[in-house]
């Protein structure tokens, strides 16, 4: 197991290196594109162009450019976006990351708990009216785009019903740091959490239900019943446990995509200054250094989450562990 984890971590490092090289090549070595022009922003002064050339080492060889770039990103962390009032790129991302983490981790907890509950109940209630009802609810959840749901939530809680006792507690849009005021942090995030998790609750509940019903026909479930185990124990220890294998691999990827900037729509709708919002603004402004940095940041999380999924996967399923 330890060897497996170690091997997985080494391959993680290799993949991360490859990602930085690829991202660098796409932005700086695409034939026919002059990176200086796009880096310096619209209508740059000659001084800015010179500064950009110097900062990115564009007068030197590609490998040297790469090394310089990575040093600026990871070591000196002083990469500057000239298109955006000389914004320091790395601090901007490190400031935005906790917001995204707060949003995504909270939503993930809600969606994991709720989807497992919904999936289990649907299976327990199979044959009754509750199973199809839950699954229709899940489908409705999947069908509601988060930006629409968010706007509707805002309309109701910030505007139409804000003055009633129901939603008078809802704070204005935006973000309060956890370290600053935990209760306000919670209040600011609770509605975004719910809106972001609705899609995933529906999706995961349906996947889990299908998996559980598949597993229900397995011989080892019959063995478990023949042992005299209670239905609850058969369901949780034998059926749910094996069904979690698919669940976990889906979760790892979805979670990473969201942390890596995929929660963009939710962040925009609720005015949360996270990585998604940063990416969104840099895309609109064609702010190359920020785009590059957020791409690398996102790719990092997706690969790291992938490695974690593989490790958890091996914990869950002994068959893929190396002997």
């Amino acid at each position: 197991m330890l060897v497996f984890v170690l091997r997985r971590l080494i391959s993680l490092v290799v993949v991360l290196f490859a990602i930085t090289v690829l991202t660098f090549l796409i932005f700086f070595a695409t034939p026919g594109v002059d990176p200086t022009r796009s880096l310096a922003g619209r209508n740059p002064t000659p001084e800015t162009v010179a500064a950009v050339r110097h900062q990115f080492g564009l007068d030197r060889s590609k490998p040297a450019q790469y090394v310089l770039m990575m040093r600026r990103l990871f070591v000196s962390r002083d990469l500057v976006s000239y298109g955006n009032q000389a914004l320091k790129v790395v601090p901007a991302i490190t400031a935005a990351a906790p917001v995204t983490f707060s949003l995504v981790i909270g939503a993930a907890i809600i969606w994991v708990v709720m989807s497992i509950l919904t999936g289990l109940l649907a299976v327990v209630w199979k044959g009754s009216i509750w199973d199809p009802l839950l699954m229709i609810l899940a489908l409705i959840g999947i069908s509601m785009p988060v930006f629409w749901l968010g706007e509707v939530a805002n309309l109701i809680t910030q505007d139409r019903l804000h003055d009633t006792f129901l939603f008078s507690w809802v704070p204005p849009l935006g973000y309060v740091r956890l370290t600053e005021d935990p209760w306000q942090w919670f209040l600011h995030l609770i509605i975004p959490w719910i809106c972001l998790s609705v899609l995933y609750i529906g999706f995961y509940a349906r996947v889990l239900r299908a998996n559980l019903l598949d597993v229900a026909n397995e011989d080892f479930v019959r063995t478990a019943r023949a042992k005299g185990l209670s239905e609850r124990r058969v369901l949780t220890r034998h059926m749910l446990r094996t069904s979690m294998i698919t669940f976990v691999s889906l979760f790892g990827l979805d979670f990473a995509v969201l942390v890596g900037g995929g929660a963009l729509l939710t962040e925009v709708v609720f005015g949360l200054p996270g990585v998604g919002l940063l990416t969104y603004r840099s895309l609109v402004a064609l702010d190359l250094p920020v785009i590059m940095a957020t791409v690398i940041y996102g790719a990092f999380f997706i690969t790291i989450a992938n490695a974690l999924v593989d490790i958890v996967y091996a914990r869950l399923d002994p068959r893929i562990r190396p002997a």
Binding site: E218, F220, R222, T223, A224, A226, R241, L316
Partner: peptide, 14 residues
């Protein structure tokens, strides 16, 4: 107690 036909699938793999 009961045992079944296919021992390959009758035990829980995890």
């Amino acid at each position: 107690a009961m045992i079944f036909q296919d021992p390959m699938t009758s035990l829980n793999p995890v």
